[in-house]
C-alpha cells in the first residue's frame, strides 16, 4: 500500500553510555505529545541523516510500554559494520531532531502462554526489557536467561536482577558459564512459550534443541535482525523502472534502490518481515542471501532476493523493480 509506516518527528532527549559498547538513546515527540502505545518486542526504524547518506536501521524499544512519554533504544557499537551504529554513537547528541517510524512488532508475546521462558544473548536483551516490563505490570509469569561475554558487557543485567531478582539468571562467557539448555527446555511446565533473541548461532542452537526435545514450532519465537553486511560494490538493472544502479560497498541493495528514487515497501529492514521481497528477472553470478524470510528453496532457485540485507557478486543482475 505504501512504504514503511507512519513517521514520528522526535528529538533526542538524552544519550546515556551504558558500557564500553552500548549507548542508550531517549526520544521524545517534538510536539511534546505522548508517543504511540506499543507492545513488548516492538521495534522502530531510526532514520539517520549522515551527510548525503540516509541509513534506516531497526532497533527494539526497550522502555516500558506503560510509559509513552519517551522511547528508548540501546545501540551496540559495531566497528566493522556499515557505520549506522558508529553514526549513532558519534553524531547523535541530546537536542538532535530525528525521524523514527511508528512501532512495529514482529516479536510479539504469545499471551496464551502460561509461562514465558526468555533467552537473551548480548544486545539481544533489548526486546526483553520491554516484554518483562509489560509482563511484570500484569502479573505475568516469566523467567529470563541472559548470556553476555563478560559481566561488564552484560547490558542492564544489574537492573534486571534488581527488578526481577530470581526470575533472572546471568551467564558469562569469560567464566565459561553456559545455559544448560537441554535441562532447561526439558523441565518447563506445559503451556510454556520460548523466546530467543541474540546472535544467529544462539538462535539456531536454541531452535534446534527445542525441536529435538519436542517443542511445537508455534511455541518457539525468535527475532534476529540481520544487519546489512558490507561487501564488494555491484551493478543492478531495475527492469520495471528502467534504471541501472550501483550498490556501494557500505550500502545495502535496498538503500541503493531508494537512492535511485524507487520506493519498494519495507518494514523491518532486517530480513525478517518479507515486505521488500523482490523477484529476480535474470542473473549471472552468485547471491549472498542474509535474510530469514525466504525459504531455502527460494535461495537455491535464485528467483527472489531480500534487498534489505542480501547482496550479489557477479556479472549482471536484473530485478523486477
Amino acid at each position: 500500500m505504501s512504504t514503511g509506516t507512519t513517521k514520528l518527528d522526535v528529538v533526542v532527549s538524552d544519550v546515556v553510555p551504558v558500557n564500553d559498547l552500548v549507548t542508550r538513546f531517549h526520544f521524545r515527540r517534538r510536539d511534546r505529545e505522548l508517543l504511540p502505545t506499543f507492545s513488548g518486542g516492538a521495534h522502530v526504524v531510526v532514520e539517520m541523516r549522515d551527510g548525503e547518506r540516509t541509513r534506516l536501521n531497526p532497533y527494539s524499544l526497550m522502555g516500558s510500554p506503560l510509559d509513552t512519554r519517551e522511547y528508548t533504544i540501546s545501540v551496540r557499537r559495531d566497528d566493522v559494520g556499515r557505520g549506522g551504529s558508529l553514526f549513532m554513537h558519534r553524531s547523535v547528541k541530546p537536542g538532535l531532531e530525528m525521524v523514527i517510524s511508528y512501532p512495529v512488532n514482529l516479536f510479539s508475546l504469545d499471551l496464551r502462554a502460561r509461562k514465558h521462558l526468555m533467552l537473551a544473548g548480548g544486545i539481544g536483551i533489548t526486546p526483553f526489557m520491554a516484554q518483562t516490563s509489560q509482563l511484570a505490570g500484569s502479573g505475568g509469569n516469566f523467567e529470563l536467561h541472559y548470556t553476555s561475554r563478560t559481566a561488564s558487557l552484560g547490558t542492564y543485567a544489574d537492573l534486571l536482577q534488581q527488578r526481577y531478582d530470581r526470575r533472572v539468571r546471568l551467564y558469562h562467557d569469560d567464566l565459561d558459564e553456559r545455559i544448560e539448555l537441554d535441562r532447561l527446555l526439558s523441565s518447563q511446565p506445559l503451556g510454556t512459550h520460548l523466546y530467543v533473541c541474540g546472535p544467529a548461532g544462539m538462535i539456531n542452537w536454541v531452535r534446534d534443541r527445542a525441536a529435538a526435545l519436542g517443542w511445537p514450532a508455534e511455541t518457539v519465537h525468535f527475532e534476529h535482525f540481520a544487519a546489512p553486511q558490507p561487501g564488494a560494490p555491484f551493478d543492478v538493472t531495475l527492469a520495471v523502472t528502467g534504471k541501472t544502479i550501483r550498490v556501494g560497498s557500505q550500502q545495502s541493495l535496498l538503500e541503493a534502490i531508494e537512492a535511485a528514487g524507487v520506493d519498494p515497501p519495507y518494514l523491518c529492514r532486517g530480513g525478517v518481515c518479507g515486505q521488500c521481497e523482490t523477484n529476480v528477472v535474470s542473473h549471472d553470478g552468485k547471491f549472498i542471501h542474509n535474510d530469514h524470510w525466504l525459504s531455502e528453496e527460494d535461495h537455491r532457485s535464485a528467483c527472489k532476493i531480500m534487498p534489505c540485507v542480501s547482496r550479489f557478486e557477479g556479472k549482471s543482475l536484473v530485478l523486477e523493480r
Binding site: 500500500m1 505504501s2 509506516t5 507512519t6 504511540p36 511508528y102 512495529v104 518494514l267
Partner: peptide, 12 residues
C-alpha cells in the same frame, strides 16, 4: 498477507 502487515496508525 495484507492484514498481518497492518500497521499501528494506518487502519484500512
Amino acid at each position: 498477507k495484507f492484514l498481518t502487515n497492518i500497521q499501528q496508525g494506518k487502519p484500512a
